[in-house]
């Protein structure tokens, strides 16, 4: 079974947190899932290349030129800013980092 401390560590990395009461239930479910995915270790993967993607395309580039800032792009930036919880002078606004 995965320890409570380890769960708290992973939660921190995930930018999540669990209350003490949620923690116990989560620990049980998480351990069962981990035990199940452990099965993967039984597969013989000697000399097998890992694959990250099902299609073989790499480094798809567009032409290296600026996209013209037309009415459409400025309208879109406005819309993207409107979707933010808080913004100021055309920038996203956040709390202090420290």
């Amino acid at each position: 079974m995965i320890s409570e401390e380890e769960i708290k560590h992973i939660a921190k990395l995930s930018r999540l947190e669990f209350s003490e009461s949620q923690l116990e239930k989560f620990q049980k479910e998480f351990s069962a899932i981990l035990e199940y995915v452990e099965n993967l270790k039984k597969a013989d993967t000697k000399n097998v290349e890992p694959m990250a993607h099902s299609i073989k395309v790499a480094n798809v580039f567009r032409t290296d030129c600026a996209i013209e800032k037309g009415e459409d792009t400025s309208r879109r930036s406005q819309k993207l800013l409107e979707a933010a919880p808080d913004s100021k002078d055309g920038y996203l606004k956040s709390k202090a980092v420290f």
């Binding site: 890992p50 694959m51 990250a52």
Partner: peptide, 14 residues
């Protein structure tokens, strides 16, 4: 142990 092994198994599945 997990992610890389899974990527290898994915090759086998394909």
């Amino acid at each position: 142990a997990y992610y890389k092994q899974a990527q290898k198994v994915r090759s086998l599945v394909r």
